[in-house]
Simulated assay, not measured.
Amino acid sequence: MVKKVQKTKTSNVSKDAKADVPTVLSLVDHDQLIMSDVQKEILKDEIDELPPIKEGELNVSGIYAYDLEDKLEVKAYIRNGYSKSIALKYIPFILLNSKGDKLAYQMFNLEELGEIPSGAARPVKLYFEKKNVYVDKIPLNGWKIAFDARLKALKKVKVSYQDLPVMDTNNRMVLESFLDELPDLNEGEFSISKFSIGLDTGGHILATIIMRNATSKPIKLEKMPVSIKDQNGNVVKSNIFELNNFVVNPLKAKMCNFVFPTNIRVQENISLDDWEILFKSEPLAKVPKNAQN
């Protein structure tokens, strides 16, 4: 086993330098339940020996590298110096020696780590496949683990509605609840979610969607292809809609309705919750000649 605690040089810094961020142990729920108090104390001691990190820094520090013959096990701590929680997904890690030579390189899926709170240090074990390890032996001293320079931390973003039409309190609460229950949105993402599909008494299929913008810029949409599938997967309607300068502002959510006329008449509005909306043009399902449109 190659065990070490990464050290960093200290130097005088100006009064404008970013402050150090103290980090504390943070475990995923499963580890929190099964780990003994003794194990947790060991982890806390390891964190205390790590060099400090700065505000706005995402850091990975290696503890040991252990050769398992078919794999290389590396234990590390990921520490979050941001003011918000972060979530990591596919992250490339590099092992380097003291000269900066690459010892190993591999991409890892860190979704199971969940959200790492601000000021948290979360332990992780990374298993490098031997094909991704470029040396026969990791040096006892002078190695470190680092993120690839292309790393992006995924910050969760909360958005709020813009330009909601006038409606009663109950309907507004339904919309707000729907927004809160949507999957997390990461910084830089744009998403479209189905809110409802229904058939009204006027013979129209009405599809309502919610667009969310987690980018720092307004997103303008001019046209959108929309297709509707029934519960059997048949495309019943398809059209390209002109959106007339439709803009979703940064960190906002905006509702949009698409209306498809039909020849169907009903006595009351009908919900079509098991129908699907697609944002592309699709050929309509073939209808028997003797069937009514």
Rank of each mutant, 00 (worst) to 15 (best):
Pro52Ile: 00
Glu73Phe: 09
Thr23Ser: 01
Glu46Ala: 12
Asp45Gln: 12
Lys223Val: 10
Val247Phe: 00
Asp20Asn: 12
Asn132Cys: 12
Leu151His: 14
Ala121Trp: 02
Asp29Ile: 11
Val74Cys: 08
Lys237Tyr: 10
Val287His: 05
Lys237Leu: 05
Met211Gly: 02
Pro261Tyr: 01
Asp37Ser: 10
Asp48Arg: 07
Arg265Thr: 14
Ile91Glu: 10
Tyr82Asp: 09
Gln106Ser: 10
Ala120Thr: 06
His30Trp: 12
Gly100Ser: 08
Pro139Ile: 09
Asp180Met: 07
Ile78Pro: 04
Ser281Val: 09
Ser36Met: 06
Ala121Thr: 08
Val157Arg: 01
Asn249Gly: 06
Val21Asn: 11
Met35Val: 07
Lys217Arg: 13
Glu41Ala: 13
Glu115Pro: 09
Ser191Gln: 09
Val135Tyr: 08
Lys280Val: 05
Ser216Tyr: 04
Tyr82Arg: 07
Pro283Leu: 11
Lys54Asn: 05
Val133Lys: 03
Ala291Asn: 10
Ala253Asn: 02
Gly188Phe: 13
Met211Glu: 00
Asn249Leu: 14
Glu69Met: 10
Ala87Met: 14
Leu179Arg: 07
Asp37Leu: 09
Lys7Asn: 02
Lys152Val: 15
Lys289Trp: 07
Val157Asp: 01
Val287Cys: 07
Gln39Met: 11
Ser271Asp: 13
Lys194Arg: 12
Thr10Gly: 11
Gln32Trp: 04
Leu221Cys: 02
Lys158Phe: 09
Phe241Gly: 06
Lys125Asn: 13
Met224Gln: 11
Leu284Asn: 02
Leu95Lys: 05
Asn186Asp: 12
Leu140Glu: 15
